[in-house]
Amino acid sequence: MDKNPILSVKDLVVRFKLRGRVLTAIRSVSIDVFQGESLAIVGESGSGKSVLTKTFMGLLDNNGWIESGSIEYDGKDLAKFKTEKEWLEIRGGKIAMVFQDPMTSLSPLKTIGKQVEEAVVLHQKVKGEEAKKRTLEILAEVGIPDVETRYKQYPHEFSGGMRQRVVIAMALACKPQILICDEPTTALDVTIQAQILSLIKRMQEKYNLTVIFITHDLGVVAEMADRIAVMYAGDIIETGKCDEVFFNPQHPYTWALLGSLPQLGVKGENLYSIAGTPPNLFKEIKGDAFAPRNKYALKVDYVARPPYFSVSETHKARTWLLDPRSPKIEPPEYIRRLKEMEVK
């Protein structure tokens, strides 16, 4: 893995105006994405994981804006982009996205072939027969059988898994450097999910892609990610290599998230669940956003926002528990259970 970040986010703040009130969706996030890695962003709904990646492509809704901070990519600051024209160069060609529901990314009125070919013509600068040839190639590559017939069919003639393959084909036809996958398998069955995940992995290797994975499913994360960023209430509260976050999690929210996995449950006992609800982002958040739901919270958690404490070179977490002055708190027992999990 190259140590130079391909995309570098610094102190990003994103706000939305909703019914006359201002909501802070991203509260000063900094993160580097390295060439060729797969980075997973995990968190509950509303934690800001989708909003964060939408800023990389200029896809914020009209009522949202970047308040401050920078997104450096390819020597440019994406946060400063004003016009759609500037974005056209980045969107698709440099950074492409695969969304959760393939039906919303595909037009129901055009054939699959035409839709993929559109991306080929636009980004690979070829036309006519050559464009069609490349379209068929890429459809075959993402595992669509009988491409000649499938080329002429409409999205409704495809199953959910096949549609998602088409969307991935469209994204790849743009020859991007970074592929953002926003919950790509949440709408799919487990068996299809496994197939789509292995397809993404294969494509990543083949095209040397950098993949940013957004998901709330930690099982998917364990399989796909090199590095993990855990988001809560618009902030990244822990980042580290996959093994570090799973086997040596530091932030109580990461503990809680891991604990609510049904795979770790003991039959007959209650599953661990996080009490309370995420904070209201319309209000200013004081201290650690997770403190009110956190039984390990210290007094300082309600007063001051914790800085990042480094656990290792690659692993850091935003929690006062890592401060040398804090009392020593052992992570809950289920974290140990996770390490001892066996293959069945």
Binding site: V190, Q193, L218, G219, A222, A225, L258
Partner: peptide, 11 residues
């Protein structure tokens, strides 16, 4: 096909 929440096993 069940996703395993353990990076070593999952991979």
């Amino acid at each position: 096909a069940i996703p395993l929440p353990n990076p070593i096993l999952a991979k």
